[in-house]
Write a protein that binds this DNA or RNA. Sequence first.
DNA 1: TGACTATATAAGAATATTGCTATATAAACT
DNA 2: AGTTTATATAGCAATATTCTTATATAGTCA
Lengths: 116, 116
Amino acid sequence: MPASDLQRFKADFFKALAHPIRIRLLELLRVRERSVQELQAALGLDQSTVSQQLAVLRAKHVVGARKEGTTVRYAVRDPLVGSLLDLARRIFNNQLTGTRTMLRELQREARRPGRR
Amino acid sequence: MPASDLQRFKADFFKALAHPIRIRLLELLRVRERSVQELQAALGLDQSTVSQQLAVLRAKHVVGARKEGTTVRYAVRDPLVGSLLDLARRIFNNQLTGTRTMLRELQREARRPGRR
DNA sequence: TGACTATATAAGAATATTGCTATATAAACT
DNA sequence: AGTTTATATAGCAATATTCTTATATAGTCA
């Protein structure tokens, strides 16, 4: 596999996570397996939307589906995906903290103008 | 911040990683700070392309830029991004292993047909 | 078989991202 | 001031993703 293929593969994986609905689906699925109905109800979205976004996650092998009678249960395929989301959460937290800090800093500057 | 905004924020972060060139940039930058020129040379891409993709990473606050005379040096803003890439690498590895295993399994089935 | 339920997929307009090429800005140097 | 070097951005066609609505499939049960 040429290196460029590998980068494309990696990019595709991140692309799978790059949608608000898919993030919410994964945050539910990382806890436990769930049927499409459950997901649909939990997110207040219509069936088609949920099914489509699950299809994207399935195509990238992030989740797996298990058919049971007429319902299909989805689950995260690799528990490391959960860790990835946790790590991402820590990064977001740093970013937001940075932003808030910067805002506070800006306000401080405004209160003592020209002090540099 | 409503929950949906947060999910959009998270999705945007992953979107920043969802491009082969940006992955390669980050893999270089996680080692150390680099100028646009260095990145350009290392990846064999033209100036405009590199600058554009860096702009995407900058917009999502994944990297930061530091101007030094006429050159601009980029760096990853949060070292956790490096950890994230490592974790992602482990996930890819599991996936590919799975694929290879499946391929091997398929071949095994072909050799003993109808054995189910 | 027919109706019902759960899920998947198709089709196409709306929107966003990419890839190119050209141009702009800004610092340093003559 | 004019030129060179490093970087950024604009403009726009090509491509990919998303959203919405409609339809298809497949299992279950009367």
